[in-house]
């Protein structure tokens, strides 16, 4: 990569980040119509960039799927079906509008069916994962399994039917015993996020295309 390109990639990204971060911060903390205008403009640019990458994403899918269908690779009929659906949805969306009955019915009919299949799969997958995790082998897993069992039993409909106050115990455990853990995660996670942002603004993070390494 040429030095100029590396320089632009490093500093242009940093300048854009600083302007975007400052405009966001200023509008949150200060009353400033000018900063509001900049933040709104950047939001539009963000949407435009996201739309463009969405377009690139669709091209990537098609290039991969077309190759796969032509070579009759494994699962090619599904990929062909997905491509046909995407083309049909695009035509229907452009022709009858995104919020028309035709588009919504066609889209949701496909999506909801798939969604139900996924939710069913989730239950099976979760049970098999839980089976592996909660096999009691040590004192630690015993404690873990016991705590999980309390929550499951107290949340079960039949427990709440026999003992209507079981729900109160569940909420007490979540709101008191579990609260300290939740709070720890929220505080440390929040601080970590802010410090990471500061690291990015200081140019310490390698994340931005790792360009900082090469300069």
């Amino acid at each position: 990569m040429s030095a100029t390109l590396t320089y632009i990639r490093t500093y242009l990204v940093r300048v854009i980040l600083i302007i975007a971060a400052l405009s966001g911060l200023v509008t949150w903390y200060f009353v400033s119509p000018q900063a509001d205008a900049i933040a709104n403009e950047l939001q539009i640019w963000n949407t435009a960039a996201a739309s463009w990458t969405l377009f690139v994403g669709i091209i990537t899918i098609f290039s991969h799927y077309i190759r796969s269908v032509m070579k009759r690779e494994r699962y090619w009929p599904y990929q062909l079906y997905a491509m046909i659906l995407m083309v049909l949805w695009c035509i229907m969306g452009v022709w009858s509008g995104l919020y028309s009955n035709l588009y919504q019915t066609a889209y949701l009919s496909t999506k909801i069916t798939l969604h139900i299949a996924i939710l069913g799969q989730l239950i099976f997958f979760f049970i098999s994962g839980v089976y592996r995790t909660f096999r009691i082998k040590t004192a630690r897993t015993l404690l873990y399994a016991f705590l999980a069992l309390i929550m499951v039993v107290l949340n079960a409909p039949w427990t709440q039917w026999i003992f209507p106050n079981a729900e109160k115990v569940t909420f007490w455990l979540l709101n008191n015993v579990g609260m300290s853990g939740e709070r720890t995660l929220a505080i440390t996670g929040g601080i970590g996020g802010v410090v990471l942002s500061i690291r990015i603004l200081l140019g310490l993070e390698k994340g931005a295309l790792r360009a900082t390494e090469e300069i």
Partner: peptide
């Protein structure tokens, strides 16, 4: 996220 996808491609290339 399509933005993350585009970014990831760049990160892996780098």
């Amino acid at each position: 996220s399509t933005q993350v996808i585009a970014f990831s491609e760049g990160v892996i290339k780098s």
